[in-house]
Design a protein around this nucleic acid. Sequence first.
DNA 1: ATTATATTTGCAACATAATTGCATTAAAAT
DNA 2: ATTTTAATGCAATTATGTTGCAAATATAAT
Lengths: 145, 145
Amino acid sequence: MEDNTARFEKLLVKNGLKRTAPRLQVLEILSGRDSATSQPYLEQVMGKDADRVTLYRVLQAFEEKGIIHKVLDQQGTANYAICSDGCSAHEHHDEHVHFNCDNCHKIYCLDTVKIPALKVPAGFKVDRLNLIATGLCASCSDKVN
Amino acid sequence: MEDNTARFEKLLVKNGLKRTAPRLQVLEILSGRDSATSQPYLEQVMGKDADRVTLYRVLQAFEEKGIIHKVLDQQGTANYAICSDGCSAHEHHDEHVHFNCDNCHKIYCLDTVKIPALKVPAGFKVDRLNLIATGLCASCSDKVN
DNA sequence: ATTATATTTGCAACATAATTGCATTAAAAT
DNA sequence: ATTTTAATGCAATTATGTTGCAAATATAAT
Ligand SMILES: [Mn+2]
Ligand SMILES: [Mn+2]
Ligand SMILES: [Zn+2]
Ligand SMILES: [Zn+2]
């Protein structure tokens, strides 16, 4: 497997973003997790390595460039995950289902589960769909049973 | 059509809630709108008729009793709408699609559009589904064309 | 009608998430 | 090495939501 840092540096350059410590750190954290990561968690992990404001700006830049996508959980907290498919500055392709676990509160990107097309009342023009399923994740439903 | 205030008073009593001015006012506002109403808007309209905290508590009580349901829009803002079907303190039945207009930012409860059942990976146990469609509402797509 | 009770409200204080302006710093281009 | 441009840090501010507690009020009991 290719060196992470080198890969991230390429990613930044490709998107016209400068190679800075806070940005590399955010990419490092996000890529090392199996579920979406909340802003509060990121803030806590980064600690004083970067200012709060910087974190917000890094996340915003990444989202605009199509590097990450934002998912709001049921409490309205922002969570971020690296985009898997070919998202770009001009268009996100993250129309997969998100699963929010009631127990561990993780948000999983269910990349394999596509959102079914929808029939809406006349006049409404659907641009994007956002489906959040809530319940117990595989790991938590295991433990309960 | 029956007098609104009388109807609301019954609703409160039925749910073991006292008939108070802020509660009646919230019901009055919500029932007079064709789309979900944001907390900030409610706060603004109520002005100094009720304290911010009271508004939050009224909304919370209504939600718990199944009188209203909460929808978060794409910005994470809380929006509230009166429950149409038989929601109760023990269970909400609001699994309809919500439509968030990019132009007027209104959130419509599409009561007629049910969320299709979902096939999730093994182990995941779905409890609730929340589908938000974003785009242009009928009224706004009219104006654009 | 008066009193007792349980609930609801308002206020103050606090917590957290997010944004803005601006001076400083640092990355990349020349 | 110097210039240019982008990004960061800091301070201040706004918005959203919560908690504890005393005062007020709706309703039930007398
Ligand atoms: Mn995702
Ligand atoms: Mn609804
Ligand atoms: Zn879980
Ligand atoms: Zn609209």
